[in-house]
Amino acid sequence: MPKLSIIIPCYFNEANIPVTMQALVANEARFPPEVTFEYVLVDDGSGDGTVGALHAFRQQQPGKVRVVELAGNVGSYNAIVAGMAHATGDCNVIITADMQDPPELMVQMYAYWRQGIKLVIGNRQDRREDALTKLLANLFHSLMRRFALPNIPSGGFDYVLFDVQIREHIVRLQERNSNLFYLMTWLGYPYVNIPYVRSRREIGRSRWTLSKKLKLFLDSFLAFSFFPIRAISAVGISLGLIALIYGVYLVFLRLSGVQEPAGWTMLMVVLLFVSAFQMMALGIIGEYVWRGLDAARHRPLYVVKAVAEPTL
Rank of each mutant, 00 (worst) to 15 (best):
S233R: 12
S238P: 00
F226N: 08
L244Q: 08
F227V: 11
I232A: 05
L255E: 08
F226V: 05
I229L: 15
V251F: 10
L250T: 05
I232L: 14
R230I: 05
S225Q: 05
L250H: 14
S233H: 06
L239Y: 02
R230E: 15
F252E: 15
I237C: 12
G236L: 03
I245D: 03
I237V: 13
S225L: 05
L250Y: 09
V235R: 01
L244H: 02
F226D: 10
F252C: 14
L239F: 03
S256P: 09
F226S: 09
S238V: 00
L241G: 07
A243D: 10
P228S: 09
I232V: 13
A243I: 01
F226H: 09
S238G: 00
A231W: 03
F226P: 01
Y249D: 04
L244S: 12
L244K: 06
G236F: 03
S233Y: 12
S225R: 09
G240S: 14
F226C: 00
R254L: 15
G236H: 07
I245T: 05
F227Y: 13
R254F: 11
I232R: 02
S233W: 13
S233T: 08
V248F: 00
S225P: 02
I229S: 01
R230F: 10
S238D: 00
V251P: 00
L250C: 03
I237D: 14
